[in-house]
Simulated scan of single mutants.
Amino acid sequence: MRAAVYHGPGDVRVEEVPDPELEAPTDAIVRITHTAVCGSDLWFYRGESDYPAGGRVGHEPMGVVEAVGDDVTSLEPGDRVLSPFSISCGECEFCRKGLYTSCTADESWGGENTGAQGEKVRAPHADGTLVRVPDRYADDEDVLESLLPLTDVMCTGHHAAVSAGVDAGDTAIVVGDGAVGLCGVLAASRLGAERVVAMGHHEDRLEIAREFGATDVIAARGEDAVEEAIELTDGGANHVLECVGAESSMETAAEVARPGGTVGYVGVPQGVETTGFLDTMFRKNVGLEGGVAPVRKYVDDLMADVLQGTLDPSPVFTKTVDLDGVPDGYAAMDERDAVKVMVKLDD
């Protein structure tokens, strides 16, 4: 089979690799039909985080089950499935309380395991990890493209909104106009926020934010952006979604939070020095909630909304490639030519 493989900063190649095989009775083999390039993939692509050379890449799989181990009870060959970016057994202490990203199985897509940007994957703990798409939607391309963001960015944006405490009638500020930030806007709107302020630097992305329910957008940078957000919200918001993970975005989130408010942070932290924004939050009694999104906790509820036509995060995909186009997809996202890249394989 063919799959995308990381060889170093800026160097992702599509190569022949061994087909995955069932290794445990709880495994399944999934033929990938849809996947994506994630903003968090850019950290290793740019050489800003470690990743094993020769490791397969991708963590947002959707496809069709080809084989299941003897102990798999909820799936059978032919089922259409998607998977959260983290693998979960569904049975340990942490899975039972909805903290699937802390599963004691401690496995993930990519690296030494099979990456999702390829023709097939072995899915460990298939019953706990894979989410079945109802048969009536299994071949509906529009629905599948709307469901694909639930593997990561939609659920991650939702986690930011939930962590920030967004509820009906609230005002929320979303820091970041990448796919997660845009999904954060959509999530805050879905939860009933009366006012959603989207902060970013790209007019085309802020247009998507408006489509997703942003009532105000801010394209300024630095202190100008902070001042505009505080003025728009008459002193800041009680609910702030931090969806980038950079030091500057964390500082912005802290500054635009209203005293006594909460920042829901889901951006993967890179190069963040804590002194500045924590000092701001300390002085304002601002809470900090969030972390790695437990996608499996949210995916069923969000899927129900997608299937009934009330939720559609698919506009975050602004470029589509085939498997051979994965290297170009990384480059497009790295150069900010695409918000998020969808990868479609032959079905």
Rank of each mutant, 00 (worst) to 15 (best):
T151A: 08
A338W: 09
I32C: 00
A3K: 03
R2M: 14
I218F: 01
Y100K: 07
L186Q: 05
M154N: 06
E228C: 05
R80E: 10
V196Q: 08
G276Q: 15
A67E: 14
I32R: 03
M342T: 00
S163A: 15
V133T: 00
V64L: 15
E207S: 08
A293P: 03
E112R: 12
S314P: 13
G63A: 10
A253S: 13
T33P: 02
R136C: 08
Y51D: 02
G58F: 00
E289D: 08
E203S: 11
V30L: 12
I218W: 02
D106G: 06
L232T: 05
R336C: 12
L75S: 05
E207F: 02
R136N: 07
S108Q: 14
A225K: 12
A331F: 12
G169K: 04
Q117M: 09
V341G: 02
K340M: 04
M303H: 06
E251T: 10
L311W: 05
V153I: 13
D19R: 15
C243W: 01
E251F: 01
E289Y: 09
L22Y: 06
E141P: 04
K340E: 01
D300K: 09
V240S: 10
E145C: 12
R283I: 13
R195L: 10
G267T: 14
D71H: 09
S40Y: 03
V292Y: 11
T274G: 12
L186R: 01
V295Q: 15
L150R: 01
V68R: 01
G157T: 14
L150G: 01
A67D: 06
M62F: 00
P61I: 00
D305M: 04
S102N: 06
